[in-house]
């Protein structure tokens, strides 16, 4: 058992000495991160650098091999922790959207509100409609996900998470499965979210976006954090050799 880290009132997510192995592959090796309230952390790095695994550990979709995750001070890996209670305060947006295809857009937005937040149908629909307005597609409420474009589906997925009133939003490469012309409509929603003060952790390949909204940039390579700091400073003056090499390839 690892020693408990110091956790301040302002620390929404603390990743403490996190390691994750898949068979013989060391996906994540001894990663420490801190996401403060209202901060937008952007994690970048080459494919296979372990950034998605770190994000998935934050919501217990992957169970760490070693180390610990604390959400608002609650230890996720503690067997006594009610994981559903923690998860209802966190939104997660996936690369493949993962909308429920058998439900309408509104059905997608209201299911967890009713089952988890115990809201009435009427209340859930009202909140669902607010969130659809926020992502700019209120007119799609009665459609099935398959009738929407990829960008619209991802915006519905974001609205679905927001309808739960989360304290932190996790984004796992939210634009990687989209056609280029649809990327911006999703990034616009995320920009608005960051500007509104939502605490966010974003794994992405969109460097322009990372530079623009990331208050805190984390560069990962081979399962480790190789550099982190204020996004503007890291972009302007990367200290680490591998960060420089990565930026020169991508930018």
């Amino acid at each position: 058992m690892v020693e408990q880290p110091a956790i301040g009132d302002n620390d929404r997510v603390v990743v403490h000495r996190l390691s994750k192995r898949f068979g013989n592959v060391q996906a994540v090796a001894d990663v420490n991160l801190r996401v403060r309230v209202g901060e937008a952390m952007v994690i970048v790095g080459p494919s296979g650098s372990g950034k998605s695994t770190v994000l998935r550990c934050m919501n217990h979709l992957e169970v760490p091999t070693k180390g610990a995750i604390y959400i608002d001070g609650v230890h996720l890996e503690d067997p006594k922790t009610d994981i559903n209670a923690v998860r209802k305060e966190m939104g997660m947006v996936f690369q493949q959207f993962n909308l429920f295809p058998h439900l309408t857009v509104m059905g997608n937005l209201t299911l967890a509100q009713k089952r988890v937040r115990r809201r009435s149908q009427k209340e859930a629909e009202e909140i669902g409609m607010q969130q659809l307005n926020r992502v700019g597609i209120p007119e799609k409420a009665r459609m099935k996900p398959a009738q929407l474009s990829g960008g619209q589906q991802q915006r519905v997925a974001i609205a679905r998470s927001l309808a739960m009133n989360p304290k932190v939003m996790l984004f796992d490469e939210p634009t990687s499965a989209l056609d280029p012309e649809m990327i911006n409509e999703v990034l616009d929603v995320m920009r608005e979210l960051a500007a509104s003060g939502m605490t966010m952790v974003v794994v992405t390949h969109e460097m322009g976006f990372a530079r623009e909204i990331g208050s805190h940039l984390v560069m990962m390579d081979e399962g480790r954090v190789v550099e982190e700091g204020n996004a503007a400073e890291v972009f302007a003056n990367p200290q680490n050799e591998r960060t420089r090499a990565f930026f020169s390839k991508i930018l």
Binding site: R87, M92, Q96, N98, L99, L111, V116, M164
Partner: peptide
């Protein structure tokens, strides 16, 4: 698709509820 279960669980739904709905 396994992503369906992950999406439901990430919204805080218990396993049984995610399976059923």
């Amino acid at each position: 698709h396994p992503g369906q279960l992950e999406a439901s669980r990430s919204l805080g739904m218990p396993h049984s509820s995610a399976m059923r709905h």
